[in-house]
Design a protein around this nucleic acid. Structure first.
Lengths: 263, 263
DNA sequence: AGTCATTGCGTTACACTGACACAATCTAAA
DNA sequence: TTTAGATTGTGTCAGTGTAACGCAATGACT
């Protein structure tokens, strides 16, 4: 026997009890969005062995609602709780995953996946996207792979991505854009207090086009979903912008009808 | 042995070869929309034994893309080909289906489903909605259950519905409404030639509110996606409305940006 | 020929949008 | 301490789109 690192408990559980605990053939993948330094970012995992980036994901317990499973997976792998999470698509191409990746993962620990094992069968994956407040989250280690990192959405295009996760990410972005009027992106991607320019940059980033500062402000205020605070954010060599918070009640109500307008 | 009707071949295949042919735990349900007599209708199946209405559905072959599976299921069960079909949600509650329904179905043919059989395990279902031209479709028998019928969406609320199919239908309707601006509903739900009042009624039905005749026409024509024909539809005791067709090219292009407006 | 519901085409007041002007503010450099 | 440069707060105005409504024309039925 070559001396390999010990097999992590979470992986061992998958190997030994996977087919007993989880539904066969169904997995969950989470596209986690954050916003920082005027950039929309994704929380990705550096898959240790294959040197490719992957989405954090997991499986569905045999008597668990899949939406609950998504929340559990997010919590287990990132420590994030009480997060805005939404299913956006299902990925069901027969050859969407490369089973050899799993084999390699286990081989580095000196373990081998039996042929026809639960884990290397075909999986249909349900895609969820999460919106989180970048400033209120600190990266911790993932129990399975180890290295998390934020990557800008532009940057992601040039990174090596595992399986079909690149396509999943693109689809998540697309959903974010087309459903923008109905999603609480501001509330979930920004810190509690934020400035109008910050909110604008968020919309500009998602829409991928510049917006007029004054018209944007007029429209946003027109929705009646913002509370203007008596504080400003000092810092830059320029006039300090006011801080705002969301009026949660009105925000929720407005989203149901959609924050319409010509963006 | 009591004398039962012979087990249909399609059902026998499910019983004997189901777990060999199909993915475990994943099913497909189709919500089929049609439009007739100013009403949005659904094509439902009268589940012979339970006397409840169900959505036509099916399973995914082991090496088949789930989108392909949806097209195949639709074709096999309704004869419909080349149809607008779109995935809208996944239904994954652990107790969403009632396994006893399947048992009853087979028992009426004198067959019994073995315990722990593939078919009575938990299923996660992927919901698709289909848009079809009511006037260009004639109901044929379904190979599994036998009786298809169109039901108005208002009527559906008061019918007994199998499993969680009622919730699936509601969710399909909701998706139809929120994505209205991006869906080719006119092209797929109406016959090739149609009148402006017919198109309006379709939108009014889906949006569930009346629209101003004159403003609707102005907006629709403004999109530049209609061809006005030199024919009128005679019939009523009133002025004959002109017929229109869609300019497919411009329609597709316009949909990508969304048919915006304040409906 | 007259009735009546429905359709084609049009008008007006109003709200919203896009584009842009100008003063106020804040930090850093002179 | 003063000034420069960048950014923000607030406002204006013409053009476009929307909501609401008017009126004549059409076609089957009486």
């Amino acid at each position: 026997m070559s001396k390999s690192p010990a097999l992590p408990a979470s992986l061992k559980q998958l190997l030994v009890k996977g087919n007993e605990l989880f539904l066969p053939g169904i997995s969950i993948d989470c596209v986690i969005f954050g916003f920082h330094e005027n950039t929309l970012k994704l929380l990705l995992l550096d898959s240790a062995k294959s040197n490719k980036w992957t989405l954090p994901g997991g499986f569905v317990l045999k008597s668990e609602d899949i939406n609950d499973a998504a929340y559990r997976v997010l919590l287990e792998r990132t420590g994030l709780n009480d997060i805005y999470l939404k299913q956006f698509d299902v990925f069901g191409q027969p050859n969407r995953t490369d089973a050899s990746v799993h084999k390699t993962t286990f081989e580095q620990y000196g373990s081998k996946i039996p042929k026809d094992h639960w884990m290397i069968q075909r999986f249909v994956s349900v895609g969820y996207f999460a919106l989180i407040d970048y400033t209120n989250f600190s990266i911790q280690n993932d129990p399975i792979n180890s290295v998390y990192d934020w990557k800008g959405i532009e940057q992601v295009k040039h990174l090596p991505i595992e399986h079909d996760h690149g396509a999943i990410i693109q689809k998540a972005l697309e959903s974010l854009r087309t459903q923008l009027a109905y999603l609480p992106i501001g509330k979930n991607l920004l810190p509690k207090k934020f400035t109008m320019p910050e909110l604008q940059k968020l919309y500009e980033t998602i829409l991928n086009k510049p917006l007029d500062r004054r018209n944007f402000q007029r429209k946003m205020l027109g929705f009646g979903i913002l509370n203007k605070l008596n504080e400003t954010r000092k810092g830059g060599a320029h006039k300090s912008p006011f801080l705002y918070t969301f009026n949660d009640k009105k925000y929720q109500k407005a989203l149901k009808k959609g924050l319409y307008g010509s963006w």
